[in-house]
Simulated scan of single mutants.
Amino acid sequence: MITATITERTAASEQTASTENEQYAHATALLTERAECGGRDRHCARLREQAIVECLPLAEHIARRFSGRGEPYDDLHQVARMGLIQAIDRFDPRAGSNLLSFAVPTVMGEVRRHFRDRAPTIRVPRRSRELYDQVKIAREELAQEQQGDPSDEALAERLQTTPSAVRKAMDDCACGAAVSLDAVGTAGGEVPALTERLGERDPGFEEVDDVLVLDPVVRGLSPRDRRILGLRFYDCKSQREIAETIGCSQMHVSRRLRQTLSRLRAELTAAT
């Protein structure tokens, strides 16, 4: 029983493969005849169109092979058909190869190029991608019915989901593609490239880090040393002005600053 079933399936598979080979062999013969007639009159155009129609199952097969990878099947099918047309137009029967061996890598290359150029750089959750495709269709339908852009609530009602889910799907897919930093916008006039609109590094962040590191160390100094440091580095006074302010000699101020800075340096080095 099992042997008979296997034999039947093998025979059916061989028959299908034979039919496909005959189909593509006939397409090769059509393109050979087209090449011989020069490819310029209406008869040659009909031969080309017939060869394309006979090879359409190949495009469908390759599109299905790449389906389920985040891109709609209809888009993949269209890209595969475009690749098939390119393969038929570029096929030269005089080169010695058959059409099938030439068309398959050409069509697959076109589909892979589509993934490279159009597929999201950042992987979008499958649920968001599926809902996003449904939202696009529902938006077109509601736009025609309402004669205007539908709201998120209307889309959610049509798709039997929540407005927040609709917005999440739109946001997720909008973030799925990378944007060139050198791209120049034109909305509302010419917009500078992103590289010219990015903020520069804020020096205030480094100052905050310095304060957080220095604060506990400075608190360990005597009030007099802290005052000398504040007058020197916060008020930017000279050593002579500091001496006049606190009522001591300039030499004393110089010595206290040197000792205080050495202590701070040693404690900070030990802390890091």
Rank of each mutant, 00 (worst) to 15 (best):
L47R: 00
E60V: 08
R42H: 13
N21Y: 10
A12G: 02
H43F: 10
A12L: 04
C37S: 15
L56H: 09
L47V: 03
H43K: 12
A12V: 00
A51C: 05
R34F: 02
Q50W: 04
S13G: 13
H61Y: 12
V53E: 09
T10E: 14
A51S: 04
H43C: 09
E54R: 14
A35S: 11
E8S: 11
A27I: 01
T28W: 06
A35L: 03
S13C: 13
Q23C: 06
E49N: 10
L30Q: 02
S13D: 12
Q50H: 08
A11Y: 04
T28M: 06
A17P: 00
A59I: 03
L58P: 05
S13F: 13
H61A: 10
D41Q: 00
E36W: 08
Y24K: 01
G38T: 02
E8Y: 11
L30V: 00
I62T: 00
C37Y: 09
T16C: 10
T10G: 07
R42I: 14
R48T: 09
T10N: 14
R65G: 14
Q15N: 14
C44H: 01
A51T: 01
A63I: 01
A51K: 03
S18H: 08
E20W: 12
E14G: 08
E49W: 09
R46L: 13
C37M: 13
Q50G: 01
T7L: 15
A17D: 14
H26G: 02
A25Q: 12
A17Y: 12
Y24E: 05
E49Q: 12
R64H: 14
L30M: 00
S18W: 02
G39A: 05
L58H: 06
S18V: 03
E49M: 09
E54S: 13
A51Q: 05
E14M: 10
A12R: 05
A27D: 05
